[in-house]
Design a protein around this nucleic acid. Structure first.
Lengths: 219, 219
DNA sequence: CAATTCAATATTGTATACATTTTTTAATCA
DNA sequence: TGATTAAAAAATGTATACAATATTGAATTG
């Protein structure tokens, strides 16, 4: 079924094993998952709808390469939506959720300690989605999920300091606000956290994503 | 190509010619548009991703029936996002855009005067998308577009007063704010407009969307 | 007569075949 | 050699065929 492929590719994108510009030939993907092109096409179209994949007519599918402009827009959107979502989560959070979030952070730390950067990065993104789930607002959850996924590609392209950890200090601060059920604090911490992430990107125009060799050398 | 089908179905949904719960057999749709099921499936999956269509495994596609909860969430999201978007539009609007919006409102009035309720309704929704386009923020535009589409189904299900016009008084007020380039005013008018629309819905739980005869009688 | 079972029918799920387009490779020519 | 063209190969776009599932309706049974 297409979901296996969608999940597989998404996870690979999350963990930066698949980088922007990578070609995704239908046959090749189909062979990996042991399905026909029919299923692969369905999966690729779904990913294209989420803006994780770009489909060029008669040329095929590629891992998307968000532009600098798109990167800014995605983080502007996150800065508007996620603080609201964090506030909602703080209002209705329960012990069970707190424990789950704590586990999540622990797993992230563990992965980082083990040097498994990809997993740590993926977990760090999913933390935000988890908060949206706690807020129990499906529409916002879908938005956050979509924005977090796209952020993964943006970070792959524009993150300033490759060795620096996507510090989860803010995540701990959020945990505190949640524990206190402090809506106001959760909102404010999340807002500054997003702004922080945004400012961790190098979005100055230089060569506007060369990305794939093919695209880069074609002038 | 699938786009023709997507646009056709979307327009029909916009104009309330296709109502929530309606079945969409692949063969039938394919015959209407003169294409094979391959294309139809692609179109239906795309519409499902936009939440305009629900696909049930081995059962097929139906026009979506948003729940009361979903209806509330959609308008909460609009209340957060659209005021921001309206403000951005007010900041950067130009004469050309103003003229276009004016035409849009005129067309809406004309349709209403001609008793063409469906067209008027569709135009009324597209007015909001047009504003997002002027704001020139692709991420927000996509969100607004998605939310407006879903609103069309929500209105079909829950609009309180079937004969009452979806008054475009607010649209005129917005035009004034845009003309003045008054960001603050645009934001505030949009916010109250969305709240107004929301309150025009009957979202009290009664029989939670019977909608399709099939679903309604199966208990 | 109501309920149930089972065959017939219709619909969706997936793979494959063929058409079209793009990309690559080889050959030709200046 | 470098550029251009032509043929070959590879990839995508679409239709169709077949398999699996769901629905319908008639026949059967209590």
């Amino acid at each position: 079924m297409a979901n296996r492929i969608i999940d597989g590719l998404q996870q690979a994108i999350f963990e930066h094993r698949l980088l922007p510009g990578t070609r995704l030939p239908e046959d090749e993907v189909g062979q990996v998952y042991g399905v026909s092109r029919t299923i692969v096409r369905s999966a690729l179209q779904s990913l294209a709808h989420s803006q994780l994949v770009t489909i060029e007519k008669n040329r095929g599918a590629f891992i998307a390469s968000p532009s600098i402009r798109e990167a800014n827009e995605v983080f502007e959107a996150r800065a508007l939506i996620e603080p609201r979502v964090a506030g909602m989560a703080a209002s209705r959070i329960e012990a069970l959720n707190l424990a789950k979030l704590k586990d999540h952070i622990a797993a992230e730390h563990a992965a980082m300690a083990a040097g498994d950067k990809g997993t740590a990065l993926a977990l760090s993104g999913k933390f935000h989605v988890e908060i949206a789930r706690i807020a129990a607002h499906d529409v916002f959850t879908d938005f956050v999920q979509s924005l977090v996924k796209r952020s993964s590609l943006i970070i792959a392209l524009y993150w300033k300091r490759p060795d620096t950890t996507c510090e989860s200090h803010s995540h701990n601060a959020l945990m505190d606000a949640f524990t206190d059920g402090d809506r106001q604090a959760a909102e404010e911490i999340m807002r500054s956290h997003i702004v922080d992430l945004h400012s961790g990107l190098d979005l100055t125009v230089k060569d506007e994503k060369p990305v794939s060799l093919a695209d880069a050398l074609k002038f």
